[in-house]
Design a protein around this nucleic acid. Structure first.
Length: 248
DNA sequence: AAAGCCGCCAACCGCTCCTCG
DNA sequence: GCGAGGAGCGGTTGGCGGCTT
């Protein structure tokens, strides 16, 4: 049984967009907003498939799209986020203002995936040196150790991070759980900046933290605990591999 | 100057996830 | 609970422009 195409091929225009098509689409969306892509093409008078309209808007016509070369800072972020999230381009793009997932994906495939560039001089890796820990394997895998993970909250994330405050260290597993969840949620809700998040010493990530972090990521896709649980195993494994790599 | 090669990037394709009836 | 349709995502492709020979 063949897959039904997303739209009828007949009468549907393909290939590069013209300036007139761009104007029709942009004018329509500014007037009516995003969504209902399948009907946008008809309503706007375009002979395009809805998916094509959506892609054109998101990757080209949308306001605040940043044009031009990827900066060194952006490249650093892409590398670090890719290390953290893998090929989840939309998530990566969501943390880099003005850049689209398609652009980042293209940049990665053409520039970064071929060979890893040397770290810039001012690059402060969140991966500790081998000398930093006497027994990294034990530290990373065996024990729940959040003692060096700063706690962020919505009110003073900036100051606490910059000062490395450890004033609110959790003392119980339950408190640790909340602390880790806060950390993730502050990052996800952008209360904590990307640089703050990435400045965390990930060598101190406990399995518990990884659990919460990965759970937090899952919840961004589906806010259902059952789904988070179902997806948890694979993601935790992936994250554990990542953590292992960091502390190697 | 012309032909061939190569890299970039916009756009398409197919799959999965989500929502709604 | 199930199925259909819509939306979103990541992988892939093809055209174009620049570079090399």
């Amino acid at each position: 049984m063949g897959r039904r195409p997303c739209c009828s091929k007949e009468g549907v225009k393909r290939g590069p967009w013209t300036a007139q098509e761009d104007k029709l689409l942009a004018d329509y969306i500014r007037a009516h907003g995003e969504g209902k892509w399948s009907s946008v093409s008809k309503q706007a008078g375009l002979k395009r498939c809805g998916k094509s309209c959506r892609l054109r808007w998101l990757n080209y016509l949308r306001p605040n799209i940043k044009r031009g070369n990827i900066t060194q800072d952006e490249e650093d972020l892409i590398i670090r986020l890719h290390k953290l999230l893998g090929n989840r381009w939309s998530l990566i793009a969501g943390r880099i203002p003005g850049r689209t997932d398609n652009e980042i994906k293209n940049y990665w495939n053409t520039n970064l995936c071929k060979e890893p560039p040397p770290p810039p001089n001012n690059f402060v890796s969140c991966r500790p040196s081998k000398e930093a820990s006497s027994d990294p394997q034990q530290q990373s895998k065996a024990e729940v150790n959040l003692s060096n993970v700063p706690k962020y909250n919505n009110q003073n994330a900036e100051s606490e991070c910059s000062e490395g405050s450890l004033s609110s260290l959790p003392t119980t597993r339950e408190e640790e759980d909340y602390s880790s969840r806060d950390l993730w949620m502050n990052f996800y809700t952008r209360e904590m900046s990307l640089s703050q998040f990435l400045d965390i010493d990930f060598s101190n990530l406990s399995n518990l933290f990884a659990e919460v972090l990965v759970g937090g990521y899952s919840s961004t896709k589906a806010m259902h605990d059952d789904d988070v649980e179902a997806d948890f195993g694979a993601q935790l494994a992936a994250f554990t591999d990542l953590a292992d790599e960091w502390i190697m």
